[in-house]
């Protein structure tokens, strides 16, 4: 228990220390929202368009996607930053401690997920100022979805980082994984209008279910039944967390 709380504390502490990183983490989603969202919202400003986007205006359609994107980016990067701990030696300090490694890594992941969730929450509140069909009652549920999403991708990042030997891989993963996952999530355009092969990929993209679930609670419209969204995310976050725990338990410095 000690290791869990301590590592979560460490991640939160680091987050508050890195002010430039905190501010930077908001820049990306805000750019998407303003330049992408406001730009296209005028293009889609005709009655037919509402049908494409499930009966809401484009900004409202985009809002849940931007929140999910914020949480996804931040949690995945924080998980993968275990590679920095490897580089700077802090990982050894944990590996050589008598505390439970499983508890330690779960602590780290939960700490990171909370900071990601915080960033997502700030963006979510911003959304309410811009988009007009969002439901306030959906906020707690979106936060729940956001937390599951964060745990899943922070865990995934940790497992990946433990297998990586160099920092070079970091950039590769960023460009080859993160953007495609975003575009295939239905955050920017509906899945139903995608080409067939893209639809297939969208269905196996976990981010899709977070975006869809958030849309259900914020807009009242969704592609999948909400139970599907929630169970996919729950199963996925538990499975990925388990893999991260297993990987960390077996980690050596070789």
């Amino acid at each position: 228990m000690n290791a869990f709380i301590t590592l979560a504390y460490r991640q939160l502490k680091r987050f508050t220390r890195a002010r430039s990183r905190v501010i930077g983490s908001f820049v990306n989603p805000i750019i998407w929202l303003i330049f992408f969202g406001l730009g296209w919202s005028e293009v889609f400003n005709f009655p037919m368009a509402r049908q494409i986007f499930g009966g809401v205006d484009y900004l409202s359609f985009l809002a849940p996607g931007i929140v999910a994107m914020t949480i996804f980016n931040s949690s995945f990067i924080s998980g993968i930053s275990v590679i920095w701990d490897k580089q700077f030696g802090f990982l050894k300090e944990i590996l050589v401690a008598p505390a439970s490694r499983k508890a330690a890594i779960v602590g780290r992941i939960v700490g990171d997920s909370l900071t990601s969730l915080f960033q997502g929450t700030v963006i979510l509140l911003l959304m309410f100022m811009i988009a007009d069909s969002l439901k306030v009652s959906g906020i707690p549920f979106v936060l729940l979805i956001g937390f599951m999403l964060a745990v899943a991708f922070a865990s995934f990042g940790v497992s990946l980082a433990l297998r990586m030997t160099s920092m070079e891989g970091f950039q590769m993963i960023m460009s080859f994984l993160m953007l495609p996952l975003l575009f295939l999530s239905g955050a920017f355009y509906p899945i139903d209008t995608m080409p067939n092969w893209m639809q297939v990929l969208a269905h196996i993209n976990p981010l899709t279910y977070a975006v869809d679930g958030s849309r259900y609670f914020l807009l009242g419209t969704s592609k999948f039944p909400i139970t599907t969204d929630l169970s996919v995310l729950a199963l996925l976050s538990i499975a990925l967390l388990g893999i991260a725990m297993y990987s960390f338990e077996r980690a050596t410095i070789e």
Partner: peptide, 14 residues
């Protein structure tokens, strides 16, 4: 045991 590694193992941000 206590260990001081050859390479630093501190958290530099803290």
């Amino acid at each position: 045991i206590g260990i001081v590694f050859q390479d630093p193992s501190l958290d530099r941000e803290l």
